[in-house]
Amino acid sequence: TYTYKLTDEEASRRAEDEWRNRGYDVRVRNNNGTWEVEVR
């Protein structure tokens, strides 16, 4: 499981799409203004 911490929502969406396209399960959540993109 990888977790990315990003401050930019758009960057988190791009990361989400990119990993999803590669067949990974992705979750995005906002934690106090930081976007966490979790990849498994």
Rank of each mutant, 00 (worst) to 15 (best):
T34I: 14
W19Y: 06
R20V: 06
R20A: 05
K5N: 13
D8I: 03
N32F: 06
S12W: 06
V39D: 00
E9T: 03
R20T: 08
T7Q: 14
E9I: 07
T7Y: 15
R14V: 11
V37E: 01
E38R: 05
Y2M: 13
E10Q: 11
Y4Q: 08
D17M: 14
T3E: 07
N31F: 10
R29P: 01
D8S: 14
E16W: 08
E10D: 11
D8G: 06
V28C: 05
E36M: 08
N30Q: 12
W19H: 03
E9L: 08
E18V: 10
T7S: 13
W35F: 07
N32Y: 04
E36H: 06
Y24D: 02
R13W: 06
W19T: 02
V37L: 10
V28E: 01
E38L: 09
Y4K: 04
D25N: 08
Y24E: 02
L6N: 06
D17F: 13
R13K: 11
E18F: 15
R40A: 09
V26N: 00
R40L: 11
R27F: 12
E18A: 11
D25T: 09
V37Y: 01
V39T: 01
T7N: 13
E16T: 10
N30P: 06
E10L: 09
E9Y: 11
T3R: 07
R27L: 13
T1I: 14
V26W: 00
R29Y: 12
E16D: 03
V26P: 03
V26G: 00
V39L: 05
T34Q: 12
G33S: 03
D25H: 11
A15P: 02
A11Y: 05
R20S: 06
R22M: 11
R29G: 04
Y2D: 10
T1G: 13
L6M: 15
Y2F: 14
D25Y: 06
E38N: 05
A11S: 12
G33P: 02
E18W: 15
N31A: 08
V37T: 02
T7K: 13
T3Q: 06
R22P: 02
E9H: 06
R27Q: 13
S12N: 02
R40Q: 08
R22C: 11
N21A: 13
V37M: 05
E36V: 11
E36N: 03
N31M: 11
R40S: 13
R27K: 13
D25S: 08
R22D: 04
A15Q: 06
R29W: 09
E16L: 11
D25Q: 11
T3W: 10
T7R: 11
E38I: 13
S12P: 01
R27G: 04
A11W: 05
T34K: 07
N32P: 00
A11M: 09
K5E: 15
R40N: 07
E10C: 14
N30M: 11
E9P: 06
E18H: 13
D25L: 09
G33F: 02
E10V: 09
G23F: 01
E16V: 14
N31K: 08
E16S: 10
D17S: 13
A11I: 04
N32C: 15
Y4P: 11
V37A: 02
T34H: 09
A15G: 02
R14L: 11
E18G: 05
D25R: 07
W35C: 03
E18K: 11
L6S: 11
N31H: 10
R13I: 08
K5R: 10
V28N: 00
E9Q: 07
T3S: 07
A15E: 07
R20H: 05
A15H: 12
T1S: 14
E36C: 13
A15F: 14
Y2C: 15
T1A: 11
T7G: 13
S12D: 02
R29H: 11
N30G: 06
N30R: 09
K5G: 08
T7H: 13
E38Y: 06
W35D: 01
G23K: 01
D25P: 03
R20F: 04
R13M: 08
E36K: 00
Y24M: 04
R27S: 13
N32T: 03
R13V: 07
E36G: 00
V28K: 02
N21R: 13
T7M: 14
D8P: 00
V37D: 01
N32L: 06
R40E: 06
E36L: 11
W19G: 01
S12G: 09
R14G: 05
A11L: 07
T3P: 06
V39G: 00
D8V: 03
E18R: 08
R20Q: 05
A15I: 15
A15D: 06
K5V: 15
T34E: 10
T7D: 14
G33W: 01
V39Y: 02
L6Y: 15
D25K: 07
W35G: 01
W19K: 01
V39Q: 00
N31Q: 08
Y4V: 09
R14H: 10
N32D: 09
W19I: 03
K5S: 14
T7E: 15
T3N: 06
Y2A: 11
E16P: 02
R40G: 07
E9A: 08
V26D: 02
Y4L: 10
V28I: 11
W19N: 02
T3M: 10
Y2L: 14
R22H: 07
R14I: 12
K5H: 14
R22Q: 09
A11G: 06
T1R: 11
W35R: 01
D25I: 12
Y4T: 05
N21D: 10
K5W: 14
V37Q: 01
V37G: 00
V28Q: 02
T34R: 06
E10K: 09
R27Y: 10
V28A: 04
